[in-house]
Write a protein that binds this DNA or RNA. Structure first.
Lengths: 211, 211
DNA sequence: GTTAAACTGTGAACAGTGTTTACCAAAACA
DNA sequence: TGTTTTGGTAAACACTGTTCACAGTTTAAC
């Protein structure tokens, strides 16, 4: 490889990096604006203005508004995934794991309501249509839950039954709490935690195997 | 009252009725369009066009888009209320009543997803801010639930506890099922009913008083 | 009966939105 | 040195909710 070729390659690389940097700038600005304004007010033109570019420029880096938004949402989902997986690996006891998963789920919803809202309430289609070869979210969020349930059943810690149905029930219960807290101002964080704690007992009690 | 006065009054009445009729036309057209297009696409200008009037005319009958929409939502809420109250009065047994209320709640959500979505997921503020002297929705939907819970507790049918917390848990559970079915296509009506039926048993079991 | 006031509806405009297209300057290539 | 590709943009299009000045009509007052 001669000098001219090396120069050419370096130039290409630099250009490519600059392109990636601008793309990242749009992504960061979009995420910032999205978390500031929420899903409803989030506007492409505002992203462009804040980033210091014309609205049309964004279309050279993203297909359209949905495309840009889906990447922002993905950041939120990765955050959720990380916290959820961390809770899953925090213990080996199936029951303790289920409790930890429930807590992690609710924690995420309460700490990142805007992300939660868009991921699980408004634009769930972004998660349902698998992106970049990944599996569906149901896989990661509820494979882990279902696995814990399965283990608990096999260990005789809870009643026998269909693990998938149990998993969906688990999801519905957690989602109900978080979604209500987001939609209804009266449903404060404190209230959610109290209902969750108090009623979790009855659930566990009802799930105990007949002795 | 002489002839001239009577004529004047009749004329006034006619004008007033025409005004009410046009207002109702806007309301009907809006409800129709809303149920057709959903909350996101619902547009004032489309309502105007379909009703055969200029967009500006609507502003003589409603404050703004939100005002018009809130009246549409109210129709949906009245429907919900009717079905919910009907379920409540269908039996005197507290446990049976709770089960009937749960079923009615889920039925409404599955049969009127667009109304449910806007009432309980997107624009809950419309219900929270009391309109036309009515009480808050929490009152009607969950007074009835709380009452049944209270009765069940007093009759010794379920464990003692805070009826409000029990009511919120009931709500969260039902809302979780319905909200997931609306957000996640995989959560079919069939699946919701199955999870509801299967898991209701465990809930009831867990709530049974220690014997 | 004439005049003034109130009512009813509208066209046009404003400030937004997402998106497309033609164009321009600068860089890369031949 | 042309020539071609690239990165960015202004302008336009088709929408949105909302406001406002302005008509035509109906009512009220003198």
């Amino acid at each position: 490889m001669n000098s001219a070729e090396r120069l050419r390659e370096a130039s290409l690389q630099r250009r490519d990096q600059e392109k990636q940097e601008l793309r990242q700038l749009f992504l960061d600005t979009a995420a910032e604006l999205f978390l500031e304004q929420g899903h409803e007010r989030f506007s492409l033109r505002q992203v462009a203005e804040r980033a210091g570019y014309s609205p049309a420029t964004i279309y050279h880096y993203f297909e359209n508004k949905d495309d840009l938004l889906s990447h922002v949402i993905d950041e939120g989902y990765q955050l959720f995934k990380k916290q959820f997986i961390a809770a899953s690996t925090s213990t080996t006891d199936p029951i303790a794991r289920l409790i930890a998963l429930g807590r992690a789920y609710i924690d995420f919803g309460l700490q990142h309501p805007i992300y939660y809202q868009v991921i699980f309430m408004r634009r769930s289609d972004f998660l349902m249509r698998p992106r970049s070869g990944e599996q569906q979210p149901r896989a990661v969020t509820f494979q882990v839950v279902q696995q814990a349930i399965q283990e608990a059943m096999e260990a005789g810690l809870i009643q026998q039954g269909d693990a998938e149905t149990f998993g969906d029930a688990f999801w519905a219960w957690m989602h109900g709490l978080v979604a209500l807290s987001i939609s209804m101002p009266m449903f404060t964080e404190e209230r959610v935690r109290q209902v969750h704690a108090e009623f979790g007992r009855f659930l566990i009690q009802g799930l105990q195997p007949a002795s």
